[in-house]
Amino acid sequence: MDFVDNVLKVFPQLLGAVPVVIVLALGAMALALVLGLIVALARLSNFRVIRGIAIFFVEIIRGTPLLVQLVYIFFVLPVIGIQIDPIPAGILGLGLNYAAYLSEVFRSSILSVEHGQTEAAWSLGYTPTKTLWRIVIPQSFVVSLAPIGNYFIAMVKDTALTSVIAVTEILKTANILNSQTFQTTAIYTAAAILYLIISFPLSRIVDSLERKARTRG
């Protein structure tokens, strides 16, 4: 019972860090969605230079750990005069990392749209740009909803990595509490439960999106 009591005692303090997690996750996902779509379109470009830059970005981001990217943004960029506060640095690091992965989701979903619909739009007088934004992207976005949801859940959990750049989110708060009370098991158990409480409803929503996507398919 003492263990349960200790877990319950630290919960209110850990809950105070949840808004930081929400800001990190929503800010980073917004950045990842916009940048991921831009990179996906660049990957599909007919211009070799643009396509090459996009491929280079994806390979660099996917080929290095997220933790290293966060550390680089927060600790290395100030050496060249670029100082970023912890939360914006966390949003930037998470956003850039997930943009690389979401770009592949967007690219594959765009390619999954039947080319016949594009040709039909052209026959109706649509320009290629108008066809892309009015016909192709809306349909591809529906296909990509479930993968986007899965990446968002992963991002929520990856916000824990921002503790290494002084962001006071759930894990950082747990570390501080542990240094003060030394109730290691209770504190980190409470942190794990809190992450589960946040991610479980999100996973149910994603499952629902996947079922709807299969039904549409």
Rank of each mutant, 00 (worst) to 15 (best):
D2S: 15
F3R: 07
F3E: 05
V4D: 02
D5N: 14
V7S: 02
V7C: 15
L8M: 12
K9M: 14
V10G: 05
F11P: 01
L14F: 12
L14H: 11
V21A: 06
G27R: 13
M29I: 13
L31C: 07
G36Y: 02
L41M: 15
A42Y: 03
L44R: 11
N46Y: 05
R48T: 13
I50K: 05
I50A: 09
R51H: 14
A54T: 01
I61P: 03
I61T: 11
L67M: 14
V71D: 01
Y72P: 02
V76F: 14
V76M: 08
I80L: 10
I80E: 07
Q83W: 13
P86V: 09
P88A: 04
I91F: 08
I91T: 07
I91N: 05
L92C: 12
L94W: 03
A100S: 00
Y101R: 13
L102G: 11
S103F: 04
V105L: 01
R107E: 11
S109F: 09
I110Y: 02
A120L: 02
A121D: 06
W122D: 02
W122A: 15
G125D: 09
G125M: 13
K130C: 11
K130M: 12
K130Q: 11
T131M: 06
L132A: 10
I135K: 12
V136P: 05
P138Q: 11
Q139N: 10
Q139M: 09
I148V: 10
I148H: 01
N150E: 05
Y151H: 12
Y151T: 07
V156C: 09
V156H: 09
D158K: 01
T159D: 05
L161I: 12
V164F: 14
I165P: 00
A166Q: 02
I170L: 03
I170P: 01
I170F: 06
L171D: 02
N175K: 14
L177V: 02
T181H: 04
Q183C: 00
T184D: 01
T185M: 11
Y188A: 10
Y188W: 09
A192M: 10
L194T: 10
I197F: 10
I197C: 12
I205D: 04
I205G: 09
I205A: 13
E210F: 07
T215A: 15
G217C: 00
